[in-house]
Design a protein around this nucleic acid. Structure first.
Lengths: 121, 121
DNA sequence: TACTGATATGCCCAACAAGGAATACAGCGG
DNA sequence: CCGCTGTATTCCTTGTTGGGCATATCAGTA
């Protein structure tokens, strides 16, 4: 996946500004609606109208989410005539979501295990 | 890094619930204060008191952030006498942050390039 | 230029989240 | 049992954010 080919990032002296910017990136992914948008774009670019149908979000609302994802670098924007095509900027999003889903599964299964084996292990 | 050794996560039919849970995971990282906490724990476990000093957060406030990071599975909690030691649950957090930092650097440098090369490319 | 369809933006409201202060709780020592 | 220290929780206030709605902008076309 795209994650392993990245050079070591800044690790020391994280200034408050840097923390805020990184937090902003995470915040862009911290919304079910936006994750739904990203998922809808997983298999190729879509127009806003397409996304309105697939996500069920209101047009204005959707547009705002798209702006946010574009501003944080997760989406590319291409105008083609009347339509605007949005697409995933790269594979990082998918990788990030996979990590989170993996963690989620782990936590859920281990939570289940904790329940079933409580007091018996 | 820890990201490549993970099996493919759930990709199809992301129910709203799943999206919300994943979003919650991202939201846990979507706060400068919590990122600061995680950074402080990068080199080993620390007590709440330690973290109060290193992060400059109020004790109550810090405790709440710790609960949140613990609830989302990013931190482990170990009681040792009066003290509670918090530690990173695994390396995923670091990997995730590296990805975000890498993206950030890319975006910043390309933004700079856009400014310096505008109308000249 | 006027008109239409696609997208973006501004305004408002409700829900939420973070920080501070005070307080409650847990474990140790006397 | 009591006091002390470290940690968790509650209440309150304030700032932020998502959603709906109306409206503005933009691009193509007659």
């Amino acid at each position: 996946m795209a994650l392993k080919s990245r050079p070591a990032a800044v690790k020391r002296a994280p200034t408050p500004e840097l923390l805020s910017m990184v937090a902003g990136r995470f915040r862009a992914l911290a919304e079910p609606a936006r994750l739904g948008i990203l998922h809808a774009l997983e298999h190729g670019p879509l127009t806003v109208t397409d996304l309105v149908q697939r996500t069920g979000l209101g047009q204005g609302n959707l547009s705002k989410h798209l702006q946010q994802l574009h501003a944080t670098g997760f989406l590319t924007r291409t105008r083609k005539g009347l339509f605007v095509h949005y697409a995933l900027a790269d594979d990082d999003v998918l990788a990030l979501c996979e990590v989170m889903c993996g963690r989620l599964e782990n936590d859920l299964t281990s939570a289940r295990a904790t329940i079933t084996t409580r007091r018996t292990g």
